[in-house]
């Protein structure tokens, strides 16, 4: 190596390389880490990889339909608290459309604070008040894999509901704003009619102007305002033992958020206060 002038003695160019990302993928979803210490992907995901497989059509052979991109006026942590988890009964659209929740479970895998939801599909019954109810039809084969959510620490959320396959990439802009890119997919084996169905349903159901989820965005913002009031937010529902972070929860337990906060606390080096 040629002699370096005007630098600290002992300077070695090879000590200052470009960042060295590592990449692995599973079922078509690409993961990149900038840290040499990150464990192999399957170890990082744990059992939630099976939920992810079901979510991306069983094998991940997906075809991109397009994006919806939006900024929400909320801190990224309140966004992740409330995007994956919230009780379906809170949705006005579900009530008005006679939509009942199916059976399901909520769980965490590994100590990284990932959360998975697996629910049977429930479809609106009776009069829907919609002139075109095809928008909420389920045309998939198996209602037992009708609804899936995979929420990976810190900000990634993937959902499958009815025939919508949606991966959400969230990036904090600052402490009061988070930008979310909703990517929607069809499956490679879909016929033309199914692609069209997914396109209509994806464009109209779960995004920032979706029939069901438009109000989520509004709620993220209101919760963020509420978080400025004095005191601490406490997760209560589903907590059976104040000393323990569990890994299985009921579908509507808010305690499913605790493993993520515990992992956040740990990597930030925050002390845990006595319960």
């Amino acid at each position: 190596m040629s002699e370096q002038r005007d630098v600290v003695p002992g300077f070695n160019r090879s000590d200052y390389p470009l960042a060295q990302p590592r990449m692995e993928s599973v079922y078509g979803v690409v993961f990149v880490t900038m840290s040499a210490r990150t464990e192999p992907l399957l170890e990082c995901l744990g059992s939630i990889v099976e939920t992810l497989r079901e979510l991306v059509g069983g094998d991940g052979r997906l075809k991109l339909l397009g994006y919806q991109k939006v900024r929400y006026n909320t801190n990224w942590k309140s966004y992740t608290d409330n995007d994956g988890y919230h009780a379906p009964l809170l949705h006005q659209a579900f009530n008005l459309l006679n939509w009942q929740g199916g059976k399901g479970r909520q769980f965490t895998s590994t100590k990284r604070g990932h959360i998975g939801f697996e629910s049977e599909l429930s479809v609106a019954r009776g009069d829907t008040m919609l002139e075109d109810p095809s928008i909420i039809e389920f045309k998939g084969q198996d209602p037992s894999v009708g609804s899936r959510i995979v929420s990976l620490f810190p900000t990634f959320v993937a959902t499958k509901h009815l025939d919508v396959i949606n991966l959400r990439f969230a990036t904090p802009i600052d402490h009061e704003r988070v930008e979310v890119h909703y990517a929607y997919f069809a499956h490679a084996d879909d016929d033309e009619e199914m692609v069209r169905h997914r396109l209509r349903q994806s464009s109209n159901l779960l995004g920032p102007s979706g029939l069901i989820s438009m109000e989520d965005a509004s709620i993220f913002h209101r919760i963020h305002i509420g978080n400025h009031t004095p005191g601490a937010a406490i997760f209560q529902k589903g907590v059976r033992d104040k000393e323990k972070i569990e890994d299985e929860f009921l579908q509507n337990d808010e305690s499913g958020n605790l493993p993520r906060w515990e992992y956040y606390r740990e990597i930030m080096g925050f002390e845990r206060r006595a319960a």
Partner: peptide
Amino acid sequence: LALGFMYDDCHARLLDRVTYITKIWAGTFQ
């Protein structure tokens, strides 16, 4: 990519857009 924020591709969907705003979403947003 054809995906939209709103995709009302027939007159029935236009009617439903009105229903979303005037009935289903009423009172739920800022």
